[in-house]
Each structure stands twice: as C-alpha cells, then as structure tokens.
Design a protein around this nucleic acid. Structure first.
Lengths: 157, 157
DNA sequence: TATTGTTATACTCTATAACTATA
DNA sequence: TATAGTTATAGAGTATAACAATA
C-alpha cells in the first residue's frame, strides 16, 4: 500500500509543485522497492544487481578492462574497484593483466562466474515476473519508453 | 545520454532476464537523476526533497507528532528525528510539547517555514517543469498510473 | 604528461537496537 | 507494559582526491 502522504499529494492534481513532488516520490518508491526485491533474491548467490550488471556486461562485451566497464556503465571508478573486488572475492571473475597495456586488467568471467550468471539470470526472470510481470506487454513498452525519455531529460546539465 | 550497457541490455528484447534488469536500471537512472536535480536547486533554501515533503505534510495535515509524520510517510523513526532536527536547526519548524501527551511533540511550521515552503514550491515547479514538463498531460497520467501500480506490486511481501 | 587502477575519505540515505521519559 | 522520541552505530550506495605503476 502506498503511504497516505503520497496519495494525498497526488490527489492535488491542480497543484504543479505537488504533481512534480508526487512523481518524484513514486519514482523513489518504485525504484527502491524493486531494487530491494531483486537484491533479496540475489543475496543467496552472493551478488547484487550491480554485480549482476557487470557479469552481464562481461558476457555481452567479453573480457574488458575496468576502464571499459566504467565507460559502458557510467559507474564511478572507485565504485568499480569495489564491485570487481567483490566479484573476484566470490571467484566469479579474474583480474588478468592485459598483455598490450600492463596498467590495465582484462577482467574475465571464470567458469563459476558463468554458472552464477546463469543462476542469477533465472532469479532475475522469476523476481522480474513478480515485480513487473503483471504489466501487459504494451504497458511495459510504454513504461520503458517513458522512463527512457525521462532518463534522457533528467540527465545532469 | 543513456549508457551503452543499458541500451544494449534493453536491445535484447527477447531475453526476459535482460528485460527485467533493464527496466530496473531505467528506474534507478530516472530516480537518481531527478532526485539530484531537485536537491541541487533546493540546496540554496537549505532543504532537500525529504525535508520539503515534511513541510508539505505539515501544511496539508496541520501540526503533527513525529509518530504521525512517520505513519503518514513510512519514513523510519530515527530518520524522522534527523529530518526534523535539520528543519528545526534551519528555523523552519518548532518542536512544542503536545499538551495532552507529554511524550509527544507537536511539530509546527514557523512563519519562516511557511516562507521557505512557498519558495520551495516555486523551485519544485521550475525544476519539475524541466524534469517532467516535456511529458504531454496524457503521458504524465500514464506514467503516474504505471508507477503507482508498480509501487503497489513491488511492496515488500 | 596522461591514463589505469587503488586507497583513503566522506557524504547521503536508511535501518537496528538500546536508551529516556512518559503513559 | 507499551509508546514517543533520542542516540549510537552500522550498512548500502556514491563521489572526490591523492597516489602508484605504466604508457
């Protein structure tokens, strides 16, 4: 159930300030709850959504330096160090020195990383069905389209 | 611009795991960027979106105990202490002991709190126009409707 | 000089648990 | 004994800046 305050704020549809604040509150609730729902189910696999997104990036783009993962994802470089540390500690990726540039690593999925990725994908399907599966396909496309444009329009100037 | 990784993930429309992860990434980006955009402009007024939401609650519901603000907003009680501390430090609210229950406060907007609320509402209108004003009214209604249902469906079980 | 990655540090947001004062 | 509020603490998540190794 939505909290009384946001319902009350959304009810004042004639007030532009409240419309904007209400939309922000809905974004916050939808985001926080869906991230928590996903992380809760991923926890037994010892990954979170950020770790999963890096496993996916390595699967989609192949072995990559941290610099490349940063460019692909927009994640801050010190945050990236910690994400890769956690994945390495869990045995899911290896840091190998890149032969052509000894400053850089080549981050590669280990066999266990591949297996964990496969499990995490199944978890993402199941949790995603619960979180988003009630949306009709056309509603989902609408939502993705609106959020995509929102993400572009809210980008820092 | 959206990062390459989320674009790539969203492009794999046939893959259920990637569809769900991609939607989560869009929610995160839209939420984080819009909150930052709003907080950046509210900063000169010495409030953030959470403080503003409490000023709005006090305006909409009248003087209230912290307990009531917690029930209205779903915010944790130790977090509420700090939000009210900040507002009180800024002279925007006063803690008065509730006459009928001396454990509780009656949090009231000060005249300066009313003035700051009026300014913050104007800021919210301006920033909201930039963040959300490009949405057609029917698209905005669609988005609010979808996010509302999303917030209900993603609520912790 | 510039770039890759690391570390130290700090700031935001949130939550838990132990505490006080009243009821 | 239960409730309103406080404090200490900790945990995510993120960002900044100084640094080492390499280009």
């Amino acid at each position: 159930m939505l909290d009384d305050l946001v319902v009350r704020i959304l009810a004042e549809d004639g007030d532009a300030a409240l419309r904007h604040v209400g939309l922000g509150m809905l974004l916050a609730t939808a985001h926080n709850q869906s991230r928590e729902g996903m992380n809760d189910e991923l926890r037994p696999l010892d990954v979170d959504v950020r770790g999963l997104s890096m496993l996916l990036a390595l699967d989609l783009y192949g072995p990559s330096s941290q610099r490349r993962l940063i460019d692909l994802s927009g994640i801050d470089k010190s945050t990236m160090v910690r994400i890769i540390d956690e994945l390495e500690d869990g045995g899911l990726v290896r840091r190998e020195r890149a032969p052509q540039d000894r400053r850089a690593y080549s981050i590669t999925l280990t066999p266990e990383g591949e297996r964990t990725l496969a499990s995490a994908r199944r978890v993402a399907v199941d949790v995603g069905e619960r979180l988003f599966g009630w949306l009709r396909p056309d509603e989902r496309d609408q939502l993705v389209g609106l959020l995509r444009r929102l993400a572009e329009h809210t980008a820092p100037r």
